[in-house]
Design a protein around this nucleic acid. Sequence first.
DNA 1: GACATTATGTAGATGGTCGATATATAGTAG
DNA 2: CTACTATATATCGACCATCTACATAATGTC
Lengths: 117, 117
Amino acid sequence: MTSKEPHLGPQSFAKHFNEALILSSLQDGPKHGYQLALDIEEQSGGRFGFKHGTLYPILHKLEKEGLIEGAWSDEGQRGKRKRYQLTLAGELYLNGLRKAWRDFMGVFSGVMGEEVS
Amino acid sequence: MTSKEPHLGPQSFAKHFNEALILSSLQDGPKHGYQLALDIEEQSGGRFGFKHGTLYPILHKLEKEGLIEGAWSDEGQRGKRKRYQLTLAGELYLNGLRKAWRDFMGVFSGVMGEEVS
DNA sequence: GACATTATGTAGATGGTCGATATATAGTAG
DNA sequence: CTACTATATATCGACCATCTACATAATGTC
């Protein structure tokens, strides 16, 4: 087994939360970091925002782990953009994250005394 | 334009997540810290567990903030238990947390590409 | 007596996020 | 033409919550 199953605890909550947002946004298509942050902020109605100091380290880590793949677009002088796209491993990992989050939210809602419809 | 809503970062959610578990568990009735951790672990099917190094500092902080109230039960020699119970402020705060959590799950599920029924 | 369980507590290490700072280009306001 | 804003990526130190480990103390048990 090569896949690392993300099991969400209180600790990894924030970490996997940001990972999930990024990977999920990349599923719509390859895009560069700056665009990614803008998209997520827009889709969340301004509630989830990425600071640069948070976003880029995560992207580098995800790339190192082989979940995303980055490529510099060399469009003349203007090109200083790195396009990221999901790898196959990244998609599998994202599926695991989605499942973990559904489970997590269900359990948490249960403990909080609210039924999940 | 909408009013300046405190847009909660991932960190504050992780923080409020533990608070919410504790406060919600105390709503079932006053109990001491050790019991609290056991209850939450049981109710979550073993998924959420509190380490003592995490639990007690949070309890102390919640008490200092007036959200819970602790009292040492002086049951002879055996009594080395501190019973905590929700204050009125704590219940109000918990209601706010529940609302914030519902909102959070809705927005997050939306960004993750899953509809909330 | 040694050990496990219940019960609370603190200190140092770890690790992720935030704010600030840096670079570089392009467009616009003055 | 200078200043400022926006786009775009990147790093570093500060902050802070959690984790691991250690410490205390009483009770029950082998």
